[in-house]
């Protein structure tokens, strides 16, 4: 019995491997024909398929009426308007953080606009257009014992969320600072409120919003110099759409579109203490 099973498993693996190998050439042929007509295909379909978050306000969320809203969604609507002539011609594909790369690879969406941070690992799998937002690690602390520089953290407890860039940054660059780690942002913020740590490090955009709701705290250190960009992403090799996006983003930058989008969506969440220039990028990286 066992012997048969092993044999069958081996046969099955061989079949699967052969199938995967065989399909490679097919796939390449398919992408190249796609690349020549990516925009035509979208126009023919009549809708732009965009991956957005459905539970990450204020970037991408669904409001009480079931409508998609947020900073990413404002951009999605504008792209549809400029490409297809109508801002309602967007098909929203609601996504999770882990699924963003796969959605592009499997051709389920045309563009990902889901707070997608540009990283070297991701650049190997998808193509990023020009950025429209920037994030840095910030540190939020109580107003009564405000932390304004990393040196002040020596001998203190810093709260971080597991798996974030903030955790990685401090483990790598400041191993001497004691970290208190939590699985979720909500828990981490609760811990800070309870005084289980002296400060908390996280993406600054997120901290701005939180500090705005919690007046006893402020982001006294808003950038640690680890700037990351957030950009639209398309399927690897889809140069036609990528180039169109870059031209479009630069044109939008000319009319200060992203500052307007910031005022509309992010400002109410981040509050008055933060300037739009800390967060938005107008369609290309300033030199």
């Amino acid at each position: 019995m066992k012997k048969y099973l092993v044999l069958l498993l081996a046969a099955l693996t061989a079949v699967i491997l052969a199938a995967c190998g065989g399909s490679d050439s097919e796939e390449k042929a398919e992408t190249s024909s796609e690349a020549t007509s990516a925009i035509d295909a979208i126009k023919e379909r009549g809708t732009l398929r965009v991956a957005v978050f459905s539970d990450k306000p204020p970037f991408g969320y669904v409001d009480a009426n079931g409508e998609n809203q947020g900073y990413d969604v404002v951009l999605a609507k504008r792209l549809a308007k400029d490409l297809l002539g109508d801002e309602s011609k967007v098909e929203y594909v609601l996504t999770e953080a882990q699924a963003r790369v796969d959605l592009l690879k499997s051709d389920k969406v045309d563009v990902v606009l889901a707070n997608f941070t540009v990283t070297p690992e991701r650049q190997e799998q998808v193509d990023f257009a020009n950025p429209y937002m920037k994030v840095d690690i910030g540190i939020v602390s109580p107003n009564s014992a405000s932390i304004e520089s990393v040196e002040q953290l020596k001998g203190k407890k810093l709260i971080v969320t597991k798996g974030t860039t903030a955790e990685a940054f401090f483990m790598k660059n400041h191993p001497d600072i004691e970290l208190v780690k939590y699985d979720q942002n909500t828990e981490a913020f609760e811990a800070l409120k309870d005084g289980r740590g002296d400060a908390m490090a996280q993406d600054n955009a997120l901290l701005f919003g939180w500090a705005n709701e919690n007046p006893d705290f402020s982001v006294a250190l808003s950038t640690l110099g680890e700037l990351d960009y957030i950009a639209p992403a398309v399927k690897k090799g889809n140069t036609e759409l990528l180039e169109w996006l870059n031209t479009e983003l630069e044109a939008l930058g000319q009319e200060q579109f992203f500052h307007k989008a910031y005022d509309e969506t992010l400002k109410p969440a981040f509050g008055e203490n933060i300037s739009a220039d800390d967060v938005v990028v107008e369609g290309k990286v300033e030199e």
Partner: peptide
């Protein structure tokens, strides 16, 4: 199923929670 983008009852719940959390 939320992991492949099907919006079922738990996902809807999370969407509502995240919007109203604050």
């Amino acid at each position: 199923l939320t992991m492949i983008g099907v919006v079922e009852v738990i996902k809807v719940g999370q969407q509502i929670i995240e919007v109203n959390n604050l």
